[in-house]
Design a protein around this nucleic acid. Sequence first.
DNA 1: ATTTGCCCTGGAGCGCGCTCCAGGGGGGAC
DNA 2: GTCCCCCCTGGAGCGCGCTCCAGGGCAAAT
Lengths: 134, 134
Amino acid sequence: MVPRLEPDVEIPHGGLTIGEAAAVCGLSVDTLRYYEREGLTALPADRAPSGQRRYFAQDLRWLAGIVMLRGTGMPIRDIRAFTEICRYEGNEAERLAVLEQHRERVLEQLNETRNHLAAIERKIDFYRKGVSSS
Amino acid sequence: MVPRLEPDVEIPHGGLTIGEAAAVCGLSVDTLRYYEREGLTALPADRAPSGQRRYFAQDLRWLAGIVMLRGTGMPIRDIRAFTEICRYEGNEAERLAVLEQHRERVLEQLNETRNHLAAIERKIDFYRKGVSSS
DNA sequence: ATTTGCCCTGGAGCGCGCTCCAGGGGGGAC
DNA sequence: GTCCCCCCTGGAGCGCGCTCCAGGGCAAAT
């Protein structure tokens, strides 16, 4: 299952079920529940009278953010910490610091990947020459 | 411990001990033994008469390759398979195919990371404006 | 009324990639 | 000799991020 972001999805009045929300953000139902248990959601999901979770636009937006952070390798525990500080207002500077620090790590990682990739491409070239000339 | 490649390292006549080799390629001693057990080395490492492993230039070059593949996210089992086919000669085309396929995956992953990163940077900009204007 | 399908919870299980440990063996420095 | 440090093996343990399961419920469709 590939996480993705579907920014303009029609949300019915009663909200989306967990299955629908999962489909929208490209996560599994189990993962969504797991994230909630782990404190990665701003608030526990709303419940229908029957006890089923219901997801609304802001939930999906938050989830999209989590998908980005996870997709760039931020560990669950760090996302939990970030979520934690996002619960209160007035600490935007702190949020900014977390994001900027994460950005640095991602850039480093991107760089390393590019270097490794270059090495792999050198190897590919090597084999291409060998294969084509044989 | 950060994996790295140290292409021109002086190798004494008797080869490097596992600790030295680990230091050179930026892996732990345990990891080196683990890789060998898992069949990620071209051949089991040479042994000194005492039974200790000894690493030579070609071992380090092979390990550097593994570091690149791991560093770009290739799973252990795939590296094992690749190592397997590299044990025989005459299947350079197959090796090439594996590397090219891996290259594709890495490029995809790189792209996704870049997209997520862009989203994170938009968020950063958002907070920067908010923070600086408050 | 029964079937079907998705939902719930708590908790166990799993695949990955190491990492650590116990128990033991050189082998060089002092 | 005796430290001390690094090496060996086999096997257990671990942190992560899910993923799956049992046992049960609601509710719309047939």
